[in-house]
């Protein structure tokens, strides 16, 4: 481990790659409404980027970028985004997750639908990335005391 971590080549490559990985992750997330991709895949890729960073730059460095607290908030808020979107459909008289009813663009419910699916995907993506990272932090180093078992994070089908 330490050998890899000290290698200047790897450190540099990682530093360069991580932003691209994240951009790609965002692309995958946003593509979820109309093509292969979506929140889960994108979230995993995004999380993998940060995990890669933490692997190479060390645990501490990684935690600075992604603290436990932030992690917790992200994982909660992701689901909250999902649920709020779903419930907002109820408010406008539709069924749960019936996006078309939300009167953002009254003329074109199909576009609204796609838009809101993206919102949901973003929510899922956020949760997945947060859970991925917390999994990594919890499982990898022995010094973390607080155990937070990752449970069922993805309920959507």
């Amino acid at each position: 481990m330490s050998g890899i971590q000290e290698s200047i080549v790897i450190r540099t490559v990682v530093r360069i790659m991580v932003p691209f990985i994240q951009i790609f992750a965002l692309y995958v997330i946003m593509h979820g409404a109309s093509g292969p991709g979506g929140g889960f895949q994108g979230g995993v890729i995004f999380g993998a980027g940060i995990i890669l960073y933490a692997m190479i730059y060390g645990h501490k460095e990684g935690k600075q970028r992604m603290s436990d607290k932030l992690n917790r908030i992200l994982s909660s808020s992701g689901v909250a985004i999902f649920a709020v979107t779903g419930i907002s459909c109820l408010v406008f008289g539709g069924m749960f997750l019936q996006y078309g009813v939300v009167p953002l663009l009254p003329d074109n419910p199909a576009v609204v639908s796609r838009l809101l699916i993206d919102v949901v995907e973003i929510g899922i993506g956020i949760t997945v990335l947060a859970v991925m990272i917390s999994l990594f932090f919890d499982v990898s180093p022995p010094e973390t005391d607080e155990e937070e078992l990752p449970a069922s994070e993805e309920a959507g089908q």
């Binding site: 909660s76 689901v79 909250a80 649920a83 779903g86 109820l90 069924m95 749960f96 949760t127």
Partner: peptide
């Protein structure tokens, strides 16, 4: 919408518990 809320509310509440 009770059928779906019975599932969604504990789900959301569960994830908000950390906050």
């Amino acid at each position: 919408h009770l059928p779906v809320l019975t599932v969604v509310i504990p789900l959301m509440a569960g994830f908000l518990t950390p906050i």
